[in-house]
Design a protein around this nucleic acid. Sequence first.
DNA 1: TGTCCACTGGAAGGGAGGGCTT
DNA 2: AAGCCCTCCCTTCCAGTGGACA
Length: 414
Amino acid sequence: MEDNVFIPYLRNRPLFRVDRDILRPSYLPERLPHREGQVDQLVQILVPALRGERPSNVLIHGQTGTGKTAVVKFIEKELRAADKMGLVHYLYLNCQIVDTPYGVLAHIANSLVEGLADKVPFTGLSVDRVYQVLLERLDARKRVVLLVLDEIDRIVAKNGDDFLYQLTKVNEDLGRSCMCLIGISNELKFTEYLDPRVRSRLGDEKLVFPPYNAEELRDILADRAAIAFQDGAVGQDVLSLIAALAAQEHGDARRALDLLRVSAEIAERAGREKLSVDDVMKAKNKLELDTVIEAVKALPTQAKLILLGVLLNEEAGNTRLTTGEVYATYRDLCRKTGIAALTSRRVTDLISELDMLGLVSATVKSFGRGGRTKEIQPSVPILETKRVLEKDEYLADLRGHRLQVQRTLFDPRP
DNA sequence: TGTCCACTGGAAGGGAGGGCTT
DNA sequence: AAGCCCTCCCTTCCAGTGGACA
């Protein structure tokens, strides 16, 4: 038993005191440093719910990792504990996942019943019908529904604001019950695009979550580190570095915690008892690459083909591509792989999607008589990304494929 | 000053794929 | 089985456009 390969790793846990999940964004801590104000505001807005009255609708703004979701989850926990009469029905929906009117209505309706038998199917009914079912269930007994719509801008981007308008009007169709909307969005400018009627109904109350500064991030990290690690495992220098790095990225606490967790994993794997600055830098690189790889893996084949086209061009020395050039390369690759090519209109959209994901950077630019088009450049490491792309079974034929180097008349190369 | 390029990005609509209702 | 509905992914069509060039 002594020479078992697991023994050395099993025995010493020099770093972590407890489960590393404490460092995951999903973990809800006992206190939320530097968000006391927002918690308090939200409590004041929502307290009528516990008395069976309808609270004002709320709009919450703030970039990723500013604690929006954490605060809302925290409030949920407290609310459930305080709701002795069982009046409040709380529901959290992420509009990036549930992003259609039908989906949202069906989810609310389904959250109100226990048995599988009464579930609204995920497709098949008309939206009106689901709405009627929802009204019936809501009014079956008196309750205050708190509906949290995270990333609410997604649903507007996709469906326009008619649906939100309808949702804010639900209370007019309800007798006993009532519904309060809590919208969370990353984009500060989100409300500008809304119909004024929706804006005024939805934004009775507004909460802004400013980015954390380095000092605040340090406090957050220190709190978690104290629970997660053995004493002395994380020095001030490491905490400061992580806080500074995350502060540069618009004060993203999620990022800071990820950095801390991955740094610790790197240190632990190396068998060290203390995190070093070097571990943090390694963790930073690993996280950045991981995000890219995950995003690329999840791409539909057509988008992968377009991205591959961009990368191959870059590799061949053609930087700053136009949409036309990308499309030409893409058609070429389609021919080689036997994949049916999409129209250029659709490819324009896919390029924009790649841009939104941060995999390429595409800016609309005018070249005068040369026309107006996007200028496209990859913003991912070429080799690693290509490796991921080539794993796609449809792209297998392109493994090791190279583009012909385009030379100008003045190219000095032989 | 006007022209004109190479797209951009909105609108409308088709059809496949999921599933319900009668 | 026939008739609906909703969503997703695309295509077709097209008016609109920033700025170099004549």
